[in-house]
């Protein structure tokens, strides 16, 4: 049932918000909610089939939920165009660095384990 799945997700979000507030908003409540949902699923408190219809729909169609925020870039264009090249350069370099470092560490650790 869709509503049940939605209720479970909101419940974990709310619980995440409470914990987040107690921890001085160190981590956003929704991210704590994600970990709480994982715990509930692992502990069997929530059946995965109860959340799957809603959670699956949300994660499969994530793009639509940030389309409105994307349009906010129109107002930012003034500042962005001045630093356009630096902005793109930072993203290119940083992305490649993350990709290579993650891959190398994982491969090295796997090899050590297999020796």
């Amino acid at each position: 049932m869709i509503l049940k799945g939605f209720f479970i997700i909101l419940l974990h979000w709310v619980a995440g918000n409470v914990i987040s507030a107690l921890a001085a908003d160190f981590i956003p409540g929704s991210i704590i909610g994600m970990l709480l949902l994982l715990c509930s699923l692992l502990l069997g408190l929530v059946k995965d089939d109860d959340v799957r219809p809603v959670a699956g729909f949300l994660t499969d169609n994530m793009t639509i939920f940030f389309l409105p925020a994307f349009m906010g870039i129109m107002d930012l264009w003034g500042i962005l165009k001045l630093d356009l090249l630096a902005w793109i350069a930072v993203i290119i370099l940083s992305t490649v660095m993350v990709l290579i470092s993650t891959g190398i560490v994982q491969q090295l650790l796997e090899r050590r384990k297999n020796l």
């Binding site: 997700i9 995440g16 994600m34 699923l41 699956g56 994660t59 939920f65």
Partner: peptide, 22 residues
């Protein structure tokens, strides 16, 4: 006018818990 859509970002994040579980 699209506040309703923005709101769904929170549930989207929580839903990723299922992805971790899977």
């Amino acid at each position: 006018s699209n506040r309703l859509i923005d709101f769904m970002l929170g549930p989207c994040v929580v839903s990723l818990g299922l992805l971790l579980y899977d």
